[in-house]
Structures are given as C-alpha cells and as structure tokens.
Design a protein around this nucleic acid. Structure first.
Lengths: 195, 195
DNA sequence: ACCTGAACACCGTTCAAGT
DNA sequence: ACCTGAACACCGTTCAAGT
C-alpha cells in the first residue's frame, strides 16, 4: 500500500520501510511483542517517533508488515519435500510455524490481532491447500480444513504454558486427532459423493 | 487472593471488588476490551484511578477477575441436560462459550492473555471432562481432548472475521472433524487397550 | 482500610515548521 | 519527501498525605 516513490528522494533517503520492519523484528525477538512500539522503533533506527509515520500510516500498518515478515520466515523454511505423504507434510508445516511463533515471544497475539491477508499469509494458505489436495478433500472442505489447522496452530501457541514438554505433547496429540477427523471426512465423501 | 478483611471497615465501605468487576464487565460489553482500563473503571465507579489498587494489586489481577466473570456466565447458562449424547452436549457447551465470547468484543484476547486458572475456568474444564467421560476416552486422553476443545473454541473466535455466517459454518465443521477424530481415537483405544 | 492529588514514565498520533 | 520539536490525549503505577 505505502510505496516508496523514488521520483525525488528528498534530503537523503536515510531509511526504508524494510529497515523499520527489520528493527521491529529485532525488537520482537529481543524484547517481546509488547515492547515493539513506535517510539522504540524510532529510537532503534535513529529517527524521531513521528518520522515513522512517513513510512507507515499508523501502528497497525507496522504490525501488519511485521506479521508478514514473520510468516515469510516460515514460508522460506519449508520449501520442497513434496514426496512425503500429506500427513507428514502437514506435520512439518505445523511444526515449523509453531516453532517460529515460539521463538518470538508474544508474536501469536500479534497475528491474532492482525488481518493476516498479506502475500506471505496467502502463500502459507495455498501451501496448506496444496498439501490437503492429496488428502481427497473437495475444495470447500480443503478450505475449511486449512482454516481449522490455522486455528489449531495459533490457538495452541496462544494457550501455551511455560511447560514446553507437555505443550508439545498436547499440540501433536490434538493435531493427530484433527487429521484423523479429516481422514474420516474424506472417506465418507468418497463413499457418498453428493450427500 | 485479595480478601476484604471486615475487621474494621475504614471511613465507609463505598465499594467492593465485585462492584469494580461489574463495571469492568459493563465497560467490556459496551466499549470493547481495549477500553476496559484502570482509569475508565475508576471513572465509572466514581473514584480516583489509584484507588483501584486498594482492591486489586495490578491491572492483570483486574483482568483475571474479569475473565472469571465472563466464564461464570457461560457456566451458568449450560447447567443440566445430561440425558443427551456426549457429542450434542459438547456442541451445546462449545456453542454457549463461543456465543458469550462474541457478545463481548475483544474478550477472547483477554482470555488468551490470562492464565485462566480461576474457579470458573476450572468449573468449565471439569464440565468438559465430565462429558468426555462418556466418550470412552481414558483420563489422559480426556484431558488432552478438553484442551483441544479449548484451543478450537478460543482460536476460532480469535480468528473470526466480520462474516458471521461463514465463521459459524467453519466453527461447526471444524468441531465435527475434531469430534470425529476423538471418536476414532476412542475406538482404537477400545481395540488396543495398552499400546 | 480506603481515598485523594500530584507526579513519573510511558504510549500513539498530530501539527507546524524546516530541508 | 523526509525529518524535527512540541504538544495533545491518553496509559499503568507509585508516593505522600489525609480520614
């Protein structure tokens, strides 16, 4: 939305939107979500707080860009591996997403407070749909299933306690129940194609 | 934790913790979660902002009490109805919880930011476990299943968009896949009791 | 015990002004 | 276009003081 016009640079192009988002990601990783603030961001890149509004219309736009950064990392992590069965691929994708969210304290709440409609969010969504296409689900069910997986991943991380071991156990157990449910659905669809 | 000692009332017991929580709930229902603030609370009950700290140690404690209020409402809504099959009872409980959360804008994020270990939270948890006891799940699986349901309900509401119709559709579809997965698990447990 | 006024250390955001 | 200083309207929380 906020494109940097390079027709005339101004006094000196000291910064870019990307530089601010990099600072936001660093702030998030180092200090947690509640500390990524306009003023803290400005201080880190060396400008006055209100100068941030030259690059982004408001804080929500910055956070939207930040969640995109976050989701981009996940999408880079899991590229190929299309030879494995679909359940294993879902497991891998879910695990990657969860791990990345846990590495950035409070990032789940950032995602949950965001629209998550950026290009990287869509990329992950289509990656899920591509995997689910191998699960014998019709397009409508696949879309529902992709959303269901998002709910499980984000919801699990958001409800996570300090005990990492039992949290991981719960996450995997729930994911398997969920995938079992999808398998059951695919089977009934195969038997009764138009009910 | 913060008990009101009645050994000597002070100048005049003008307020109570409950009065503040009532104000918090009203503020939540009328203006949304981001507007339930210490200062707004104080203004509504007619005291100075810092006087709130006579009743609660900090804002987190107020929000904890508020989520308890919220969960108490749900628990009152669904009391009996133990004659129905367990799937229907889970459906009813999940529906009640979701409806109540949707009625209070932003309340999900309040719950997700809270420990949810108060008496009303536990009451809902044990209510879930009681229902799941009829689903042929061993105690460990039942505990996992209760958490899985919480993740689905809270996660679904947190990811909800403006389109109420498709949101409800997605919620119910996912819940059914999930319950199918639990049913499958119960069946395999019945066949292989100690694997 | 309960309440107040004043203050501290923060927020996001806007405005007028400079280059 | 990009940046600044100053200000506005907020926060949560603490402190000293009054009853």
């Amino acid at each position: 939305m906020t494109e940097a016009r390079s027709g005339r640079p101004g006094p000196r192009r000291t910064l870019s939107e990307q530089a601010i988002l990099d600072a936001a990601l660093a702030l998030l990783a180092e200090l947690g979500a509640e500390r990524v603030t306009i003023r803290g961001l400005a201080a880190r890149v060396g400008i006055a707080p209100n100068a941030v509004y030259t690059y982004f219309p408001d804080k929500a736009a910055v956070l939207h860009g930040l969640t995109e950064q976050l989701l981009g990392r996940v999408h880079d992590t899991q590229s190929g591996e299309s030879s494995l069965p679909w359940r294993d691929r879902i497991h891998a994708l879910a695990h990657d997403l969860r791990t990345d969210l846990l590495a950035h304290p409070g990032s789940v709440h950032l995602l949950l407070g965001d629209s998550m409609d950026g290009p990287n969010a869509r990329a992950i969504g289509t990656a899920m749909l591509a995997i689910l296409a191998d699960a014998d689900l019709d397009p409508n069910a696949a879309a529902h299933a992709a959303h269901l997986l998002n709910v499980h991943i984000l919801g699990s991380v958001a409800l996570e306690t300090t005990d990492q071991a039992v949290a991981t156990d719960r996450f995997q157990w729930g994911l398997d129940r969920l995938l079992d449910g999808l398998t059951t659905y695919a089977a009934t669809q195969r038997d009764h194609p138009r009910s």
